[in-house]
Computed example of a mutant assay.
Amino acid sequence: MIHFISKRLKHSLVLLFLASVVCFTLVVSAPGNVAVLIAELRGAVATPGYVEQVAEEIGLNKPLLMRYVDWLGDAVRGDFGISYRTGQDVSADLANRMFVTGILIAGSAAIATLISLALGFLGAFWPYKLPDRVSRGLALLGASTPTFFVGALMIYAFSVTFQLLPSFGFAGPKSWILPWLTVAVLPAAVLSRVVRVGLEEAMASPFVLTAKSKGLGRTAILFREALPNITPLFINALGTQVGLMTATAIIVEPLFAWQGLGDYFLAGVRFRDFMVVQACLLIFLTFFIVVNLIVDLAVLLTDPRIRRQWS
């Protein structure tokens, strides 16, 4: 078990290093002259002399490898530089925005988990009957509908038509509900099929016959026997969906006027603020890698077969 954990930690560190290389390479490979852009954003005339001064000031004249080492060393210390557009510390902006995105992902993951378990158990309790068909249809609809369209429908239904919930802003739990639901629809649809198929396979296993011979009903078998068997599979699928929620945040945050990492990343891309783009990309990739590491450890704890393999 210790060997498994150390091996996964080593793999995660390698992936983090590769992620930093990818982030740095993508940004420095972008077309255009960053020094000219910064000079124009400062309101100055982009004369050759001033452009050279700006390039020297922000270290663009250094060799590429040295620039990467300097940037990575600063990033490890939590220093992501100064925004080209606003002149403010990127790390300070990230600290404020990470809380907003964290609330969005955590709430959406919780809702997606509850909905998927409910739909999955609904279908497994009445297999191939009307409840199962309804849950299948809802899962197919949720997985096929684009997230931005789901958000627009949520706003029209709950904010415009019924005026039950606010449609924009980060002003407390009531304003979090619509963004949570918007992000949760797609993961809930995917995870509900994971639960339904997993339970169906578990109910066809020999241990179910043993449980039935002991007089257990279908509900007790589903919760006491089948659910523990699909837990590692569900955790794996949930981890993937939580990682993908970072991409969904880029769409949902501007839609509901949330000033999170997704909105910050889009602003950086729009204004070619490369320091912001680098920082956001690195955080997104780091989050995805850390989530996968946590998922692997959780699966190790919940699956005795893997524990025996690495014991």
Score class of each variant (00 low, 15 high):
residue 2 I to F: 06
residue 3 H to C: 08
residue 3 H to I: 13
residue 5 I to Q: 05
residue 12 S to F: 15
residue 12 S to G: 08
residue 16 L to A: 12
residue 18 L to A: 04
residue 21 V to G: 15
residue 23 C to E: 09
residue 23 C to N: 15
residue 25 T to V: 15
residue 32 G to P: 04
residue 33 N to D: 13
residue 38 I to S: 06
residue 39 A to L: 15
residue 43 G to A: 02
residue 45 V to K: 01
residue 46 A to K: 08
residue 46 A to I: 12
residue 46 A to H: 12
residue 47 T to K: 11
residue 48 P to V: 14
residue 49 G to A: 10
residue 55 A to G: 07
residue 57 E to L: 11
residue 58 I to E: 05
residue 60 L to R: 05
residue 61 N to W: 07
residue 61 N to Y: 11
residue 65 L to A: 10
residue 66 M to L: 04
residue 67 R to A: 14
residue 71 W to F: 13
residue 71 W to S: 10
residue 71 W to A: 11
residue 76 V to T: 05
residue 79 D to F: 04
residue 87 G to K: 12
residue 92 A to D: 13
residue 101 T to I: 07
residue 101 T to W: 10
residue 101 T to L: 10
residue 103 I to M: 08
residue 103 I to K: 05
residue 104 L to W: 02
residue 104 L to I: 14
residue 110 A to Y: 06
residue 111 I to R: 00
residue 111 I to P: 00
residue 112 A to P: 04
residue 113 T to Q: 00
residue 113 T to H: 00
residue 114 L to W: 10
residue 116 S to A: 14
residue 118 A to V: 05
residue 119 L to Y: 00
residue 120 G to A: 14
residue 122 L to I: 06
residue 122 L to W: 09
residue 124 A to D: 04
residue 125 F to H: 04
residue 130 L to H: 03
residue 130 L to Y: 01
residue 132 D to Q: 10
residue 134 V to I: 06
residue 135 S to T: 06
residue 135 S to F: 04
residue 137 G to Y: 14
residue 143 A to F: 13
residue 146 P to C: 01
residue 148 F to L: 06
residue 149 F to E: 00
residue 151 G to K: 14
residue 151 G to L: 15
residue 152 A to D: 05
residue 156 Y to E: 04
residue 156 Y to N: 03
residue 160 V to H: 03
residue 164 L to M: 07
residue 167 S to C: 13
residue 173 P to H: 12
residue 173 P to Y: 15
residue 180 W to P: 00
residue 181 L to Y: 04
residue 184 A to W: 01
residue 190 V to K: 12
residue 193 R to A: 11
residue 195 V to P: 03
residue 196 R to Y: 08
residue 198 G to H: 01
residue 198 G to N: 01
residue 200 E to W: 07
residue 201 E to M: 09
residue 202 A to K: 06
residue 207 F to G: 13
residue 208 V to G: 07
residue 214 K to I: 10
residue 214 K to T: 09
residue 215 G to N: 08
residue 218 R to Q: 12
residue 219 T to N: 00
residue 219 T to W: 02
residue 222 L to Y: 08
residue 224 R to T: 15
residue 226 A to F: 06
residue 227 L to M: 08
residue 227 L to E: 12
residue 229 N to E: 05
residue 230 I to K: 07
residue 234 F to D: 02
residue 235 I to F: 07
residue 236 N to Q: 05
residue 238 L to S: 00
residue 238 L to H: 01
residue 240 T to W: 04
residue 241 Q to P: 01
residue 247 A to V: 13
residue 247 A to C: 11
residue 249 A to Q: 00
residue 249 A to N: 01
residue 250 I to C: 08
residue 256 F to K: 09
residue 256 F to E: 12
residue 260 G to L: 11
residue 261 L to G: 12
residue 262 G to S: 15
residue 263 D to C: 08
residue 263 D to W: 06
residue 268 G to S: 09
residue 272 R to F: 14
residue 273 D to R: 00
residue 275 M to H: 07
residue 278 Q to A: 15
residue 279 A to H: 05
residue 280 C to E: 05
residue 283 I to R: 00
residue 283 I to L: 02
residue 286 T to L: 09
residue 296 D to S: 03
residue 296 D to Q: 06
residue 299 V to M: 07
residue 302 T to L: 09
residue 302 T to A: 09
residue 304 P to H: 12
residue 304 P to N: 09
residue 305 R to W: 05
residue 306 I to N: 08
residue 306 I to H: 07
residue 309 Q to T: 10
residue 311 S to A: 11
